[in-house]
């Protein structure tokens, strides 16, 4: 609590974290976001920003142009049949998002990994600032092989074989010791500071933490499932169980959805966060309680990722 109070009063919520290689920087450049406090209810957040739309030239934001048809290796079901995986809970109720040039599709990021010169679908991320993508910890760090440094590319709003916002690479990969040291699934979240500021045009998700139970809160998981060939798909459900560090929900997902924002839609003027507001980082398929799940955004996690901006 102390951290959030001082952060708010000091007005430095957009400063880089102490782990940034270039050191600590003061100042705020995220003019499209607003941090509000409502400590009496144990809820605090930052609102979504819907961006300026598809730019005439993505290189103006430091992104690379990607020609239509650029080859990323992925799987596509010819008939659209689902895979019968556990994390499709009941019927497959996913819906394709097309086009992807309006928010929040524009701020939903396809993450690829290149190994041996072959670029493949890897994960999903979500913009959380002009240059910050958040995702699952296992999308940036593997306990067996370490950081995926130099292997990841980020394509906001990718749509099959078109890439309206181009691509960016990571300047810094980020996670937390709960994941990198302890390997705790409850702490399986991370991010990447990009070498571009494409978030100004794609917009970014909001996020908030609350001490209250979130059970019954609507949830949307929107991302790049591994059976849909770099297409963006979405499905809505609700929080089924609330744990202190994890949320459980029945949104239909497939491998590749890891790192998607688990978000809810809050009305304009809502306390803490309005618009598309992230509650958790999607990370795992069905576990012991029969639900899909992801690490919950808590107060300390919120402070940490805001510090990454």
């Amino acid at each position: 609590m102390l951290a959030s109070v001082v952060l708010a009063t000091a007005g430095v919520v957009s400063a880089a974290s102490a782990s940034t290689p270039k050191g600590v920087e003061l100042g705020s450049s995220d003019t499209g976001s607003e941090v509000t406090a409502a400590r009496s209810t144990g809820l605090r957040g930052v609102s979504a920003y819907e961006g300026t739309g598809v730019p005439a030239d993505v290189t103006a934001y430091g992104a690379q142009r990607v020609p239509a048809g650029h080859k990323i290796r992925g799987y596509s079901s010819p008939t659209g049949d689902d895979l019968g995986v556990q994390s499709i809970i009941g019927a497959d109720n996913r819906v394709r998002v097309d086009p992807t040039t309006s928010f929040p599709a524009s701020a939903t990021v396809l993450i690829t990994r290149t190994v041996g010169g072959v670029e493949s679908l890897h994960c999903t991320g979500w913009m959380f600032g002009a240059s910050l993508v958040l995702t699952a910890g296992h999308c940036v760090y593997n306990q067996s092989s370490g950081w995926y440094t130099g292997q990841l590319k980020f394509y906001p709003g990718a749509n099959g074989t078109t890439y309206p916002y181009g691509s960016c690479t990571a300047a810094t990969l980020r996670s937390n010791t709960g994941w990198t040291t302890d390997g705790n699934p409850d702490a399986d979240y991370g991010g990447a500071t990009l070498n571009c500021s494409v978030g100004n045009t794609t917009g970014w998700y909001g996020a908030y933490w609350t001490t209250a139970s979130l059970t019954g809160t609507s949830t949307t998981v929107q991302g790049y499932p591994g059976d849909k060939a770099q297409q963006q798909w979405t499905h809505s459900d609700q929080v089924r169980e609330t744990a202190s560090l994890r949320l459980y929900y029945d949104n239909d997902t497939v491998g590749g959805n890891s790192g998607s924002s688990v978000h809810t839609v809050r009305a304009s003027g809502s306390t803490g966060c309005s618009g598309r507001c992230s509650l958790a980082f999607h990370a795992y398929g069905v576990g012991s309680n029969g639900h899909n799940s992801g690490p919950r955004i808590t107060e300390s996690r919120f402070n940490l990722v805001v510090g990454w901006r």
């Binding site: 102390l2 951290a3 959030s4 001082v6 952060l7 000091a10 430095v12 400063a15 974290s17 102490a18 782990s19 600590v24 593997n142 306990q143 067996s144 937390n176 010791t177 709960g178 040291t181 302890d182 390997g183 705790n184 699934p185 409850d186 702490a187 744990a243 202190s244 560090l245 994890r246 576990g287 012991s288 309680n289 808590t298 107060e299 300390s300 996690r301 402070n303 940490l304 510090g307």
Partner: peptide
């Protein structure tokens, strides 16, 4: 403040039925 924010929240899992965390994969 950043140090507090970075180390304040990663307590062990509270999920009673979850397997114990391990870094060994």
């Amino acid at each position: 403040v950043l140090a507090l924010g970075a180390c304040g929240g990663e307590a062990p899992s509270s999920d009673a039925d979850a397997p114990p965390p391990t870094t060994a994969r």
